[in-house]
C-alpha cells in the first residue's frame, strides 16, 4: 500500500507542505489563490511537540476509520481500493462526530468553494495521484520528512536498516554520530528550553 510516510525527526517546520496543500486544493491552483473569495485551507498541520519540535500531522487514512464509522450521514467514504478516506461535503452536516472520533485530531471544519461548510481533512491528493503525481505535501518537502512510498517496502528499507544497525552497534563500539547543522540546532533549542524552565 502506497501512502504518505512521516519522518518527524526530519521536519524543519518550514510549513511549505501546508502552503502547497492549500494551493493544490484551491480553485485557481496558482499563487494568487490566497485572494480567492473562499481561500483554500491546508489539510496538513505542523504541531509543536512538548519540546517545541515540529511534527507534521495529517490524516492516516485508517482502515477501519473511526471517523467513517462515526459518520451518521455516510459523508465519509473510502476510495482507491479503500486506501483513501474521503469526505463528501454535500452530505456532511457538521455534527462534529468525526472530529471527536479521530484519534489524531486532524479534522477541521471549513467552507468549501461552493459555500458549503463541511468537515475538512487530507484527501491524499487523489486527483494528483490519478495524474501520476505525488501528493502536494510530499512534493513540497525538501528534507524527506514527508515521503510517498509503499509502507512495507519503506519500513524494510529504512526502519529495518536502522534496527539492524542498532543491534549491530550494540555489540560494537559506539560509532561517531553524524553531526549535521540541524542536529546542532535541535540540541541548541533543547538547551534553550531547559534554561527557560529553570
Amino acid at each position: 500500500m502506497k501512502t504518505v510516510i512521516i519522518n518527524p525527526e526530519r521536519c524543519v517546520g518550514c510549513m511549505q507542505c501546508r502552503f502547497q496543500c492549500a494551493l493544490a486544493h484551491s480553485k485557481s491552483k496558482d499563487y494568487f489563490s490566497v485572494f480567492e473569495e473562499i481561500p483554500s485551507k491546508p489539510r496538513i498541520h505542523i504541531v509543536k511537540t512538548k519540546d517545541k519540535e515540529p511534527f507534521p500531522n495529517k490524516c492516516r487514512h485508517c482502515n477501519p476509520a473511526p471517523c467513517e464509522q462515526s459518520c451518521i450521514t455516510k459523508a465519509i467514504y473510502r476510495a482507491n481500493n479503500d486506501e483513501i478516506v474521503l469526505i463528501n461535503p454535500d452530505k456532511c452536516i457538521n455534527c462534529g462526530m468525526c472530529a471527536m472520533a479521530c484519534p489524531f485530531g486532524v479534522i477541521r471544519y471549513h467552507l468549501y468553494p461552493h459555500r458549503k461548510l463541511s468537515a475538512h481533512k487530507c484527501d491524499q491528493c487523489i486527483l494528483r495521484l490519478t495524474e501520476g503525481e505525488k501528493p502536494a505535501c510530499v512534493s513540497a518537502c525538501k528534507v524527506s520528512a514527508l515521503v510517498y512510498d509503499d509502507i512495507n517496502k519503506y519500513m524494510t528499507n529504512v526502519e529495518g536498516r536502522k534496527i539492524a544497525e542498532l543491534v549491530y552497534l550494540g555489540i560494537r563500539e559506539k560509532r561517531e554520530e553524524n553531526i549535521n547543522g540541524y542536529n546542532l540546532l535541535k540540541a541548541y533549542n533543547k538547551s534553550l528550553l531547559e534554561i527557560s524552565r529553570r
Partner: peptide
C-alpha cells in the same frame, strides 16, 4: 513556532527570483 528550520540554519535564499531556494540539511 516552530520557526522555519531552513531559515534558522541560514539555508534559505531569497536573493533572486530564480529561487527562492532551500538546501536540505540532511
Amino acid at each position: 513556532e516552530p520557526h522555519c528550520g531552513f531559515c534558522e540554519l541560514g539555508l534559505s535564499c531569497r536573493i533572486c527570483t530564480m529561487g527562492p531556494c532551500r538546501i536540505d540539511p540532511f
